[in-house]
Design a protein around this nucleic acid. Structure first.
Lengths: 254, 254
DNA sequence: TTCGGACATTTTGTATCCAATCTACCGATT
DNA sequence: AATCGGTAGATTGGATACAAAATGTCCGAA
């Protein structure tokens, strides 16, 4: 997150000059670190959704969540608004917030966007990653392997997403990193919805192959592997053509 | 404490596919007749910022805005929260909301992201655009030319952004289209902040060249022109090296 | 028995109110 | 005279209270 270290340079109409003092005192103090309970609630709900403890379609009642977190509805509403903005929950007027159920079209769009963005990100990582970055990635892989051994599907999905997020962070473009965070969250929902149960969600460890290419400073190979990896993930899903619900109904009456 | 798990509505479809009824059935039958005054306020403020009637750094007091729009602070706060999420305004704890002042680094990131995304979008447009789409683009160009003739810089910036937005919409990926909307807004702020005054912000009409390439169904040329166009825009800015404030301070103590 | 309508309950949406925090001004002290 | 400390004003952050809307139920009539 960008710290709000951008001080107002010009003020509204009254002749307030740029407040340099605020600019300086704000930089080292970083006192914007207010834990911001709404951020916490946002993270908690998001985590629950990403680990699919809250499956798509679940109604997220404000009062109930407020009681769970021991705060007022105000905080919950703000958190839900942010989740709505990220397309993780959909808000229906006067009816409430629900965990989103991306359509197959939206799922395809998510993968389209990822195939566009992530090869570029990993190219930059392959060019610019430091030894510490690579070490961090290797450390993360260990967690993934452990989760895979334990057959902990929730952790596998979550950690796999985190891996891609780490790459995005290393790439160094904060805007794209944030976009990737949204795409990752949506991908989690898509996997939960459309994963063919028998197929492992993130096959074997193509991730370690990606790290190898990064370590070899081979951007082209890394990008190619990334595309291949994303294709594998997408093809492990059952993205049936849209409008199936209607077809099912028609079949029932046939 | 286990979060509430309400299986929402078991639709009649036997396939127990994800319940997108909540999402879709909302579209045609939605009685959200309320234009959602918070959306309106959001649009109004955003428009004012994009037309740089509210320059970067401007303090956006809640009470004042509430008085302007004749609503309560609640609505304004929600609108500001959404703008904050889009990085158009930055929120400083206990101090209020300010129109964002993107740093030069952030400006470069924005253009990086655009160079990554937009060539792909225009490729798709060149492949799939209908005659109606192309007509819409040509119509838009006329507006741009008119604004350029009238030397109405605000409209030029705004309309130039809209052009790219139209392309993103035609491309057909809603996620990327939304991302482009955010990038466009940020670009507007960047142009306002760093535009070299003598250079026209969006040079001549490279836009019509883009449309020509689209009409010729030449994705490669369209993409190349788009990159060139983005480079022109970026290079027409004075992106001075970062850390100027810190350097100034250091100079003071030297 | 089933369909229709009205009522009651629950939940969301909005405004108002109170507390916490910051800015600015002013006075006191060295 | 300048700087530091304190107090007052203003503004944001959060909670509660109130109004509007929707869902679900119950009763009545055909």
């Amino acid at each position: 997150m960008e710290p709000p270290r951008l001080p107002p340079k010009t003020s509204v109409s009254t002749g307030q000059k740029p407040d340099l003092a605020a600019q300086i005192s704000d930089l080292p103090g970083r006192r914007t670190g207010t834990p911001r309970s709404v951020d916490l609630i946002f993270q908690r709900i998001l985590g629950a959704i990403l680990e699919h403890r809250l499956p798509p379609g679940t109604k997220l009642g404000e009062e109930r969540l407020a009681a769970v977190f021991g705060v007022s509805r105000t905080q919950v509403r703000q958190a839900l608004a942010r989740l709505t903005h990220d397309r993780i929950v959909t808000l229906i007027a006067n009816r409430g917030a629900f965990v989103s159920s991306p359509t197959v079209d939206e799922a395809r769009e998510v993968f389209e966007a990822r195939r566009l963005i992530e090869p570029d990100l990993i190219r930059r990582v392959a060019r610019n990653a430091t030894a510490a970055d690579i070490r961090k990635l290797r450390e993360h892989i260990k967690l993934e392997s452990a989760a895979r051994l334990a057959n902990d599907k929730r952790s596998i999905i979550r950690l796999s997403g985190d891996f891609h997020q780490i790459i995005a962070d290393i790439a160094g473009n904060t805007f794209l990193a944030r976009t990737m965070r949204e795409l990752e969250s949506l991908t989690c929902l898509v996997i939960i919805l459309y994963d063919a149960p028998e197929v492992p969600s993130c096959p074997y460890d193509e991730h370690s192959g990606l790290i190898d290419a990064i370590e070899a400073r081979d951007p082209d190979r890394a990008a190619a592997l990334m595309i291949e990896h994303l294709d594998h993930v997408e093809h492990s899903l059952e993205l049936t053509p849209p409008g199936e619900a209607e077809i099912d109904l028609a079949a029932v009456f046939a």
